[in-house]
Design a protein around this nucleic acid. Sequence first.
DNA 1: GATTTCTATTGATAAATGTTAATATCCTTT
DNA 2: AAAGGATATTAACATTTATCAATAGAAATC
Lengths: 191, 191
Amino acid sequence: MFKNIKNYFNQLITFIEDDWLLFEERLSIIEIKKGDYLLKEGQTCKMVSFIEKGLVRLSCTIDYKDVTTGFATENEYISDYESFLLQQPGKYNIQAIEDCTFINISYLDLQYLYKQKLVFSDAGRKISENLVIIISHTLTALLTQTPEERYLELVQIKSPLLQRVPQYMLASYLRITPEHLSRIRKKISGN
Amino acid sequence: MFKNIKNYFNQLITFIEDDWLLFEERLSIIEIKKGDYLLKEGQTCKMVSFIEKGLVRLSCTIDYKDVTTGFATENEYISDYESFLLQQPGKYNIQAIEDCTFINISYLDLQYLYKQKLVFSDAGRKISENLVIIISHTLTALLTQTPEERYLELVQIKSPLLQRVPQYMLASYLRITPEHLSRIRKKISGN
DNA sequence: GATTTCTATTGATAAATGTTAATATCCTTT
DNA sequence: AAAGGATATTAACATTTATCAATAGAAATC
């Protein structure tokens, strides 16, 4: 069951067998169906979820409209990090675009582990650092690219994702209307 | 000399006197003049810099144009985190908008400290977590607000900063042209 | 203090993107 | 297979924002 999450951690850090045991007994598993929510805005995010299977989107409501701000899929983490880290009510929804299986660790269990051994604090630091890299890159892309360029990069880097996400959600993520995305796609495909 | 940086850390974590000694002997001080660069794109960012005095901007070059992506001032950190964390050449410049004094810690010294004591790894984790919160918030703002709304928030939250930054840099940061910012300001001030 | 350079504003026009509405396509469900 | 609902495309038009050009204002340099 924990093969994927173990692989993920092995890329970051060296756990000995004993660390794994301590870690695994803190994990919980949740399954939800397509369309269902793992987290709704206004709730305090209690856990970080490793995606064992499926695809989710991160969204929030702006001017009564639902805006997709990110996607995450197999072997990635998802959480409302701001809400999770501050343990305050957050602004984000996490919704399953496909049936999903999550492996979760709660805030309290994580704090417990951080205090137990340096290796856990190190792992937490590295995961945070990775997040900084990922979010920084997203931010830079948004600051420096046009919608068309962002779409092209998405096609290049996350092509498999495009097949699994409805276009209107992609448009929302790219910060353009579905109509405009449709025009960009037409233009790219060669008028 | 290290009063400000100590205050900053005391908000995050409890260092004992011994920790401070270990920490302080790893710090270095750099001063640069207005207009000069602490880091230029293409270089690998070797350190994280606490701003003791002054004001800097983070920028990168897009289509031969210089784009401001962030500001940082007294009692904040600045770095090209992506370049720093990966120890790879980066895309960002750090330029002094005013004469600056930085207190720096190098990548290698930081790795050394992380191995010494849990408290340093914990501090590093918390700083990364703070960064995640800050960058996430910036990202969300960019995803969900119009240029005018972003300007108004900037006025509210970082009013002192506005006095110190030329308007064309602000415009670049808001992702609009200086002309457009000028029009927004005119409109807000009451036609 | 005059000159020069950089910065900010304004107006006219162009380009990009959004809005609305109609139609077409695809997917479910029956 | 038909019906219904969701999603995607297309067109006409509106709005936002950028571009270009000219001018005004501010700040640095001599």
